[in-house]
């Protein structure tokens, strides 16, 4: 067996005294589309923050392959972080820069490419997300869905090994959400990128997820990990079934 891409062991997340989730253990394999799911307020986004280096765990470890992410030196951690791309819920584009400048920023900072090469890459990445020709627009001139796609183009700028998505379909119409899902799958298939998605969009979960973890706000820990389809078929936990069926199984069971 190869080493998993990300391994989480005994992770406890807390804000001050308030424990959000405890004893999380799961692995994300190379090429997985990994779903972090659970009801509102269970700590999905906070778990993402622990994985991308924005919040230090109260306890436990996150490994990138064999490297301990939070025990590594600051320089080491920054080096790991450079291999990941993150699409934030709002897109988080730099509002004072144009789309081209947004995407060129990491390229200019971390590669030796000249301005001409960078411009080519920027056009290519924008074309990938369906925004060809929008180089000179400012983020505020775009719709929410376009901002999100531009954010994805920036996240992909350095060809990351792992892409993180925070609620990618939030605020998108069903068709755009579907297109984004397709884009995620084709990124995995063509580039072999490992993908981690925080979502509670059932359609997406079943359409793209190959592995997942289910967080529960009541017991403050994970209830299960594995492929969403398999969880639906095999899990005996009422909460998971209820979540994965929009609560409709309650009606079936009572009949």
């Amino acid at each position: 067996m190869t080493t998993p891409h990300i391994t989480v062991t005994n992770l406890t997340m807390a804000y001050g005294d308030f424990v959000l989730q405890r004893d999380l253990n799961f692995t994300i394999e190379h090429g997985d589309i990994f779903i972090i799911m659970g009801g509102s307020g269970c700590g999905k986004s906070t778990l993402l923050k622990h994985l991308i280096g924005l919040q230090r765990p109260a306890k436990g470890d996150v490994f990138y392959e064999r490297q301990d992410f939070w025990r590594a030196s600051d320089e080491e951690r920054v080096r790991i972080m450079r291999r990941i791309g993150v699409l934030y819920q709002s897109g988080a584009l730099f509002s004072s820069l144009t789309l081209a400048e947004n995407i060129a920023l990491p390229l200019g900072e971390f590669t030796d490419m000249n301005a001409h090469e960078i411009a080519d890459i920027v056009s290519y990445k924008l074309a990938l997300v369906g925004l060809a020709g929008f180089e000179d627009y400012y983020p505020s001139e775009l719709s929410g869905g376009m901002q999100k796609r531009a954010g994805l183009a920036r996240a992909m700028a350095l060809d990351p090994e792992i892409l993180f998505f925070d609620e990618p379909s939030a605020g998108l119409d069903p068709v755009s959400a579907r297109l984004l899902d397709d884009l995620i799958v084709s990124l995995r298939d063509t580039l072999g990128t490992t993908i981690v998605v925080v979502t509670h969009e059932l359609a997406s979960i079943f359409a793209i997820g190959s592995n997942s973890v289910f967080l529960d706000p009541d017991t403050k820990t994970m209830l299960a990990t594995g492929s969403p389809k398999k969880l639906l078929a095999e899990s005996s936990d009422a909460k998971i079934i209820q979540f994965l069926t929009r609560g409709e199984s309650d009606a079936n069971k009572s009949v």
Partner: peptide, 17 residues
């Protein structure tokens, strides 16, 4: 402050800047 609200500062951090 606005950049913080808009996660732009988070985005910089995860970019390694």
């Amino acid at each position: 402050g606005t950049m913080n609200v808009n996660s732009e500062i988070d985005a910089l951090k995860t970019m390694g800047i």
